[in-house]
Simulated scan of single mutants.
Amino acid sequence: MTHRPLVSVIVPAKDQAPYVSDALASLALQFDDPAVLEVLVVDDGSTDGTGELAASFADRLPGLRVLRNESTAGLATARNQGLDAAGGAYIAFLDGDDWLAPGHLAACLDSLRRLDVDFVRTDHVTVEEGRRTLVRAPQARRGTALDPRESILPADARAMVDYPYAWAGLFQRRVAERGLLRFPDGLRTAEDRPWIWRLHLQADSFAVVNAPGVIYRRGVPTSLTQVCDERQLDFLPSFAMIFDLVQTVEDPTLFWPKVARQFCAVACHHLGRDNWPGDLREPLRAGITQALAAMPQEACQGALDTLDAERRAALLPLLPGGPGRFTGSVPAESVPAAPAGVSP
């Protein structure tokens, strides 16, 4: 392309042959003229012909480029590769197994230009076994410019940092030029958690807008959410990055309660999984202990106090110094047994 494209869409895809055609067909329906799109498919070491299928859409998407990794780099690095190659005035993400309703990006672009914010966020629809469910972005104020930092809170309710989906929105190029759209290279899972925290801590403005929709396909066999191996441990360095980010702000005590609640919820989810390989259980538990020790005591206790008895039972034995570390914590002998698969 000899001119700057209007919108660059970054599509990381590994072994997405059954789905990538749906994703690209939907991109051809976003604008009256598909030539305004630059579509960057990052074929991340696929072995099923994903890249070749993507390339077959060149006649319907004149701005299509397929970037090929001979070996798998991971979702975070693949998205960064797309960012490095993107030339558009605006940037969007779409996973290779999802798709967009017709005109979705055009509606996002209209809102982004009208409001002149750094980025817009949208709701999405999940599809699983034929059932569709609307998932709303956790911000009630729609169609107005907002301060991203203010939408990190409240700590005790779902907020925008609990909605880390990169594909649920559209971004000004100026945000990418500040480095705020880059993902932590090498993270194989939970890469979007430090990404969304940095975006909301450092960007200047955003809005939540109504748009036709992102359709998110759940239950895909190749999705990392469906497997349990060492890649799932990447939530630990992911949260370590969030801890570091929060420490750089003027008043970190404002945000620590939210971080602590997020971490405890995710840690309990992993502790409750009964399909962890035996050799990964100890690294999981040791990593959680280390993270709990890194939190301010008040924030950690506040998060523990919000847990139900079963989840608190899973975390208390992992506290550095034992269950009695915090005043007010439930004594170990009065806590119900840990869930199945989680040995204290």
Rank of each mutant, 00 (worst) to 15 (best):
T2Y: 01
H3G: 07
P5M: 04
V9R: 06
V9N: 08
P18K: 07
A25R: 10
A25W: 03
S26A: 04
L27M: 07
F31G: 04
F31S: 06
P34Q: 07
V36L: 03
E38F: 04
E38G: 01
L40R: 14
V41H: 02
V42A: 05
G45F: 09
G51M: 11
E52K: 13
E52G: 09
R60T: 12
R60H: 09
L61Y: 01
L64C: 05
V66S: 09
L67V: 15
E70Q: 12
G82V: 03
A89E: 11
I91V: 14
L94F: 09
D97G: 02
D97P: 00
G103A: 02
L105I: 13
A107C: 05
C108T: 08
L109I: 10
L112H: 12
L115N: 06
L115S: 05
D118E: 05
R121M: 07
D123F: 04
E128P: 02
Q139T: 01
Q139D: 07
A140F: 02
R142G: 09
L146C: 05
L146M: 10
D147T: 01
R149S: 03
R149I: 00
E150M: 01
S151R: 14
S151N: 11
A157D: 10
R158G: 03
D162F: 00
P164I: 03
Y165G: 10
W167C: 08
A176T: 01
R178E: 11
R188C: 09
T189E: 10
A190L: 05
P194H: 05
W195T: 03
I196H: 13
A203G: 01
F206C: 10
V209F: 09
A211T: 10
A211C: 09
Y216N: 13
V220A: 04
P221M: 00
S223H: 14
L224Y: 11
T225D: 13
C228W: 14
C228F: 13
D229N: 15
D229Y: 10
D234G: 15
F235G: 05
P237I: 12
S238R: 14
S238C: 08
A240M: 08
I242Q: 08
F243V: 15
Q247C: 03
P252K: 02
T253V: 10
T253F: 02
V259I: 12
A260L: 05
A260P: 12
Q262M: 14
C264N: 14
A267N: 07
C268M: 07
W276Y: 09
P277G: 09
D279N: 14
L280I: 14
R281N: 12
R281F: 12
A286E: 14
L292M: 15
A293L: 05
M295I: 00
P296I: 06
Q301M: 07
A303C: 06
T306I: 06
L307F: 06
E310Y: 08
R312F: 05
A313Q: 00
A313M: 03
L318N: 04
P331R: 08
A332W: 12
A332N: 06
E333N: 12
A337T: 07
A338H: 02
V342D: 15
S343L: 09
